[in-house]
Design a protein around this nucleic acid. Structure first.
Lengths: 231, 231
DNA sequence: TAGTGGTCTAGACCACCTG
DNA sequence: AGGTGGTCTAGACCACTAG
C-alpha cells in the first residue's frame, strides 16, 4: 500500500507511526527492510533511513544491523528536558529577576559536600528571586583546580550560575531530580517552613575527567518542570 | 585547517565541538556555511549537514535558513529522560516487583480530579512494591469514552500502567515533575509520615485530541531520577 | 557469510528568511 | 533577491551481527 507521501521524510514517519498505531506492525514486529520500504513508499532509501532513524531516536523503533528494525516491545516515555538559566526562566515568565549572594567562602580539602575531589573548593550560596520573592536557593561548590579564575570572582552581582556558563566550558555532566524536605538552612533562605517539600536539582559538570562544579538548586514550593512526550 | 577526519560525521562533530570549546567559535558566533565547511573538512556537504544537525538537536547550535548556523548564546542543559514502566524499573534494579490494587471505581462526570473532560471515568489507585516495600503510589483516571474496554478490566493482577501501554496506543502526552508533601491518603498508602517530601510525576496522554488517561505517580522517599548532560 | 542498517557522495531543487 | 539550510536522489561501500 502506498502512503500519501506528500512532502518528505516526515510523511513516511507518519505512515510508519500509523501502521504501528493501527497494530499492522504490533510491538515486537520486525518491519520490512529499508530497500523494500523505499520501493513501497516510492522514494530513495536514504529518505526511509532518515524517517526510521528519527523514530529510533524517539524510542519507537529498535534497529540493529542484520537483525532489522522492530517495534519496541516495552515502550518508554522518552522526553527531552531543557533546563534553562535561572534568569532566563524567570524573565521568560514575565517576572523580574533578582539575585542575592548569601555565602562566599574558600574551603580546604574538608568541605561540606561529598565531593569526589580533595582540591580546594569555592563554596557559594545564593538566592534567586522572581518578583522579589525567593525562587531558588543555590548551593554550589566550584573546583578551584579546574577553574582557578573563579577565585577572582566575587559573585555579588553576577551569579556563579551565569558566570560559569559564560566563561567555563564543560564537556559533559550529570543531573538528578528529587524531592527533599527543606532543612533549616534552606527553609530560612527560601522563607518557607521546615519540611516543606522542595523540588531539587543536583547537577555535576565535568571538563574531560575533572569536576568543574557541583550544585544543588532547591526550588520554592509549587515548582514544576514540564515536558512533552511523543514523536 | 583540516581536521583529523578519521571515520565519519562524528569526527566532524568532534572538531566543531573542539572549536566551540576552544573559543575559536565563541557563543553567538556565526560559523561558516555548510559548503565551506565541507571544503574545509574534505567531505560532502551532506556529511557536514548530518554533524551540524545533530549538534542543533543537542542544543549547541542554532540554525536558520539564510541566517546561517551560530553557536547558541545561552546554552541550556538539554537532557533526554527515559521513564520506564514501573515493573521494568524495579526489576532492572534487581528487586522483585509486586502490585496491589487499592481502589477501582467508576466515577460520573463529577470525579475527583481536575479533568478537562466530563465523560465517565474509571478511577484506579494502586501500589507498586519493590522487594515488598512500597515504591510508588499510583492514582489514575481513565477516560472510558476513549478507552471503553478498560471497563472490562479488573486491574487486580495486571496494573493499569502496563495494560494501557500494551493495549492502548497514544499519540502524544504531557509530563510534569514536582515535589509534594505527602497527604494523608498517600502517606498511608506508602507507609510514610504525613508531609514527607515525595517526588511526583503527573502524566496525561492523548490520542489525537482526546484524553486517554491521567495519572499521578508518587514515589517513595529517596527516589531520584538521573540523566546525562552533553552532546 | 550473507543480509541489514550506517554512512558517504555529488549533484540537484526548493523553502525560507534576512538584508 | 540572493544566500542558507532542508531535503531528496541513485548509487556505492562498509560495519556489524544473526543464523
Amino acid at each position: 500500500m502506498k502512503a500519501a507521501h506528500s512532502i518528505g521524510w516526515q510523511s513516511i514517519q507518519s505512515e510508519v507511526l500509523r501502521r504501528i498505531h493501527a497494530r499492522e506492525w504490533p510491538p515486537g514486529h520486525v518491519i520490512p527492510n529499508e530497500i523494500d520500504l523505499a520501493k513501497d513508499f516510492g522514494c530513495a532509501r536514504a529518505t526511509v533511513n532518515r524517517a526510521l532513524q528519527s523514530l529510533a531516536d524517539s524510542g519507537v523503533l529498535e534497529r540493529r544491523r542484520k537483525a532489522g528494525t522492530r517495534v519496541v516491545l516495552h515502550p518508554v516515555s522518552r522526553t527531552t528536558l531543557d533546563i534553562p538559566i535561572l534568569r532566563q526562566e524567570i524573565e521568560a515568565a514575565g517576572k523580574t529577576y533578582d539575585y542575592r549572594l548569601l555565602l562566599h567562602a574558600t574551603d580546604g580539602p574538608n568541605h561540606g559536600m561529598d565531593l569526589p575531589f580533595r582540591d580546594t573548593a569555592l563554596h557559594v550560596q545564593a538566592l534567586h528571586l522572581a518578583d522579589m520573592k525567593a525562587y531558588v536557593f543555590e548551593d554550589r561548590w566550584i573546583n578551584l583546580s579546574a577553574v582557578p579564575k573563579a577565585s577572582e570572582q566575587s559573585f555579588d552581582a553576577l551569579s556563579a550560575n551565569e558566570w560559569l556558563i559564560q566563561y567555563v566550558p564543560f564537556t559533559h555532566g550529570e543531573i538528578a531530580f528529587s524531592a527533599q524536605n527543606a532543612d533549616a538552612e534552606t527553609a530560612k533562605a527560601l522563607g518557607v517552613d521546615i519540611d516543606t517539600a522542595l523540588f531539587v536539582i543536583d547537577r555535576t559538570t565535568f571538563d574531560q575527567d575533572q569536576i568543574v562544579t557541583q550544585v544543588r538548586l532547591s526550588y520554592g514550593p509549587g515548582y514544576k518542570i514540564t515536558a512533552q512526550i511523543g514523536p
